[in-house]
Simulated scan of single mutants.
Amino acid sequence: MTGDGWEWDETLYAGSAPHYVVGRMPYPPGLAEVIGEALGLDGTGRLLDVGCGPGSLTLLLAPLFEAAVGVDADPGMLLEASRRARDLGITTVEWVRARAEDLSDDLGSFRVATFAQSFHWMDRSVVARRVRGLLTPDGTWIHVGATTHRGAEGADPLPHPRPPWDRIDALVARYLGPVRRAGRSTLPGGTRGSEEEILRQAGFTGPTRIEVGTAPVVDRSVDEIMAAVFSLSGSTPHLFAAELPAFEADLRRLLIRTSDDGWFSETPHGISVLLWRP
């Protein structure tokens, strides 16, 4: 149980890892350049990516460090992360299955710890204190705020239709109910905020904020949009149980009706990077 009453469980992203890799838009390569320049990274030191998922951020930043450790509680995510590292020929990353709350001093010390779309799932006060103890005196906590499963709203013309996200959300609610699901729990008020207050209470100072501009328009297929839906904690495949085939068929029909050629276009969201010092 976390300090604010939300209880994590192992089914949160169960079965979503292969969909995550396909359905999430990648971080722009410029994100690594911005972080590297801001911190003067030179290929030395170690990176700790907490709640690393399939390694999307870990593998982007790993070349900036001597070594990296990606930590996640979901074995499927780590399997995908390890596979992607092999495909990219990156051999400097160690993948560790653990909850962030259980991070141990045995991992050693780190120049940078990163959290991307993950901190809100944790007992944040506990994790902030543990991670602060793992950072070197000149280290940095990096919080990456991003939305990668869907693009920004807008009315400007794009090469293909925008995905019908409002109707997709309504379809999910028709099958799973109006209150957002999250593993065995629900999130009637959405995910939690107040990260800045928690980090200050743990002894961090800052933040320094860096905004990374939007990437070019991305074209996405029906299968990629479906994977994006299944990559979300509120619509992971297992939540649909026996109704999964029916939902999948309804979702595919909705998407095909929206785009004659089966393609969609979206403008990725910008990315916020917050730098905190211990």
Rank of each mutant, 00 (worst) to 15 (best):
D123K: 07
V131S: 01
D49Q: 02
T44P: 02
E94T: 15
A67R: 09
R184T: 14
D74W: 09
V112Y: 12
A228I: 06
I198P: 00
G5S: 10
A68M: 04
P278Y: 06
V273I: 14
S82H: 14
M25R: 03
T186Q: 07
V112N: 05
S104T: 15
G154V: 04
F115Y: 11
L232M: 13
A68Y: 08
E224R: 05
T148K: 05
L199M: 12
E33P: 06
P245R: 03
G145V: 15
L47A: 03
Y20W: 10
L31P: 03
A182L: 11
R192P: 08
I210L: 13
G139P: 10
G213N: 02
A73C: 01
S125G: 14
D4F: 15
T186M: 13
E197V: 07
G234M: 14
D166L: 15
E266W: 10
P161F: 11
V217L: 02
V21E: 13
A173I: 11
A228P: 05
A32S: 06
F119H: 00
I142G: 01
L31G: 04
A241Q: 14
L158T: 01
L31H: 00
V50L: 07
P164L: 12
L57Y: 10
R83V: 05
E94M: 08
A62W: 09
S82I: 05
M1F: 13
A68P: 00
P216V: 02
P178S: 09
A113D: 00
W6Q: 12
G55F: 11
A182H: 10
G213M: 09
V179P: 05
L251I: 07
P157R: 05
R277G: 06
S231C: 03
G108R: 00
G234L: 07
E7K: 10
G154F: 13
T148P: 02
A146W: 12
I225H: 03
G213F: 13
P278R: 00
T214R: 13
